[in-house]
Design a protein around this nucleic acid. Sequence first.
DNA 1: ACATAAGTATTACACATGTAATCGAAAAGT
DNA 2: ACTTTTCGATTACATGTGTAATACTTATGT
Lengths: 122, 122
Amino acid sequence: MSNKPKISEAEWEVMKVLWNRSPVTANEVISALSGKTAWNPRTIRTLINRLVAKKALGFEKTGRQYHYYPLVSEEASVQTETKSFLERVHGGTLKPILAAFLEEQKLTPDEIAELKEILDKS
Amino acid sequence: MSNKPKISEAEWEVMKVLWNRSPVTANEVISALSGKTAWNPRTIRTLINRLVAKKALGFEKTGRQYHYYPLVSEEASVQTETKSFLERVHGGTLKPILAAFLEEQKLTPDEIAELKEILDKS
DNA sequence: ACATAAGTATTACACATGTAATCGAAAAGT
DNA sequence: ACTTTTCGATTACATGTGTAATACTTATGT
């Protein structure tokens, strides 16, 4: 089952909150995002609702409040996104991709070592 | 100037044709894509028009025919896409991303060596 | 019990995207 | 010169996305 729902860019921010901690209420998602984004709480609720409609999130009712939790794992979603990304830039040279990776992620030495290990094993 | 126009997934296919060879006519783009996609020629013309509107493509008229060519480089576009992709999954663990990369089997041993070199230098 | 507040559900609306069809103009055949 | 074909330009339309506002429902305080 667990088919890969397409998660939009804004929705992705919501998912990251839920992957980080769950189950949480809509309000908790809203306050978690209030530092990061300038979205209206209504907007965030809309995003949550869409994610529920897409079956990327589930919830349990506790009284009138809903506690949301992910129905898709972060790992699987990253995989899906990455695959789609790679398909799109297929044929592009790989070097600038990794270069951007390195530049953007500000990799720690530990992470670099880990990546090298992955490369070694392949 | 040359600001980064957002190129959609379908449009990206058109750009790849043009990055590969240009300037070419719409019909040449259409036949280049006829093997890869099942799009109606009308659809491809629409995509070309949108890319022109986004200033991702330019053209010269030769008689009544237009010869299109990219206004943005593949390198720059890959960079932009990659940055956006990374921002979206930012905070996600890096390992599954590289794992997906490797799984796609885009990496030849030569490339792996090259990547390791990049990692070494950073 | 009833009003109020706090959640959730429904509706809105503009712009992007996928996927074309139709309109109009100009080149080319007859 | 007129008709037909061939391009490009304009228009279409459903669905997705960003960004909310409004309506509805139900705890909760009084």
